[in-house]
Design a protein around this nucleic acid. Structure first.
Lengths: 150, 150
DNA sequence: AATATCACAAGACTGAGTCTCATTCTTGGT
DNA sequence: ACCAAGAATGAGACTCAGTCTTGTGATATT
């Protein structure tokens, strides 16, 4: 890795972006960021609150939501609407991390997937549609291997 | 139109499916069905409750949710997750009515759209994915013509 | 170190959605 | 028509994710 082209971790990028946006540092935000960084899949706000309370550093509910809002506004985290009552959040990785989600309606399992053809279809579509498309998060519903019984 | 091949309205189909599923008739359900039939785009449960209270036939909150659940289970209505805090519902039309939604994150406008290439991409995708895909509802976010300022 | 400002915690509050249960309506059988 | 069984409904209590308020503590700048 060269000096200025090195691969930055998500935490490092998050700290840099937050600082550039004029935010001071704080323990609650740090705790939320570290938890999000340690997870590979999307968490709900309540899951985050519970995990932190059980863990080393409790963080109040208001702080969890505030931090998630800040991170979302800076495109550091992304909402995932799984249709499961609670919104989920996951960190946004820059390089090739673009993926969508499969949700099993029976057991609630959430799985990531990605597909080139789908991306192309959406890119083209975006040009024809009366909306400047900013983000897309596709969620497909169905039943997973263990729930093939409906 | 022939005698048995005639085009059935959504209301007629709904009544038939409900009856076949062993449901008796009732005023609340009828009112919800008529409202959904009169709408071209998706409504939230609260919008439905309000519209009915203001209209001819008030329907209690419990009934609105109960009826929507029943209709969804029978695939007569479809949920639309717009990421706007409240789930929306719209009737499911059989012939070619398959469409998705654009949501303006600034003003909350919800617009329908459909796209053949997108459908094809999803159909192909469904075969490669570890999930028996039952439904898909794509929601694209962005800003509409009137909100081009972010 | 003083100060101004941001970050935070605690908990009251809001409101969408659920649950319960008593009452009313439908419908099939008589 | 009448009646009984069971479905449909209404009213409101209840749950709980998410918001808002306020007082306190942390942080950076001078």
């Amino acid at each position: 890795m060269s000096t200025h082209g090195h691969t930055e971790t998500w935490i490092e990028r998050a700290e840099a972006v937050l600082s550039a946006a004029g935010h001071k540092r704080g323990g609650a935000r740090r705790a939320v960021i570290e938890l999000l960084d340690s997870q590979s899949c999307a968490l709900t706000a309540v899951e985050i609150e519970d995990a932190l309370r059980t863990g080393e550093r409790g963080v109040s509910r208001a702080s969890v939501y505030r931090v998630l809002d800040e991170l979302e506004a800076l495109r550091l985290v992304q909402r995932v609407e799984t249709g499961q009552a609670m919104v989920r959040y996951e960190r946004v990785c820059e390089q090739g991390g673009h993926h969508h989600h499969l949700v099993c309606d029976s057991c609630g399992l959430v799985m990531p997937f990605s597909d080139e053809a789908l991306e192309r279809a959406i890119d083209k579509l975006s040009e024809r549609v009366p909306l400047r498309v900013s983000e897309h998060e596709i969620v497909l519903h169905g039943s997973c291997h263990d729930c093939r019984d409906d």
